[in-house]
């Protein structure tokens, strides 16, 4: 299952969705907002998305992950809106009969999400400036 939310990510709820008596492993990845990037300090971040496409791409990721690895539960939750440093912006939980599949599938899901799911963040720096973050695109 996948979702996009404006609410705080509750890791217990994320995990409950993938727990299953057939599973011998549950892997949870949390992406959390950093307060320091290089020598700059972040006050807050704003996330926005192209919702219809982001939902389709997340559903595709789950589907491909399920084809490639022997997994039982997949749950991807992405947060939007205004976040403070230390909050979770994304959670990926995967359960599987044996741990290797959950680790591999989880890593592939977050790596691919960061390439292909149209969600963007804006850094609100402590010096008052703001920048959209676009890897490979420098101002």
């Amino acid at each position: 299952m996948i979702s996009i939310t404006n609410e705080t990510i509750d890791t217990n709820v994320v995990l409950e969705a993938v727990q299953d008596h057939r599973a011998g492993a549950v892997v949870l990845f949390l992406g959390t907002t950093r307060s320091i990037t290089g020598d700059r300090k972040t006050d807050s971040l704003d996330y926005e998305c192209y919702e219809s496409m982001a939902i389709k791409k997340l559903e595709e990721l789950e589907s491909i992950g399920r084809q490639r690895w022997d997994v039982i539960g997949v749950n991807i939750v992405h947060r939007l809106g205004h976040l403070l440093p230390g909050e979770a912006s994304v959670a990926v939980a995967v359960s599987s009969p044996h741990r290797a599949a959950a680790f591999k599938c989880g890593q592939w899901l977050i790596d691919t999400l960061k390439e292909d799911v149209p969600i963007w963040k804006k850094e609100n720096w402590s010096d008052g400036t703001k920048d959209w973050v676009h890897p490979g695109l420098e101002d």
């Binding site: 994304v90 390439e115 292909d116 799911v117 149209p118 963040k121 676009h134 490979g136 695109l137």
Partner: peptide, 27 residues
């Protein structure tokens, strides 16, 4: 229509179009 396109993708009057800058969701 919510899928990545290439330069040769054909657009129709009904197509839903968007420009997708490099993404930075996730962490």
């Amino acid at each position: 229509d919510d899928q990545f396109a290439t330069d040769t993708t054909i657009v129709t009057e009904q197509s839903s179009l968007a420009i997708i800058p490099p993404v930075s969701g996730g962490t």
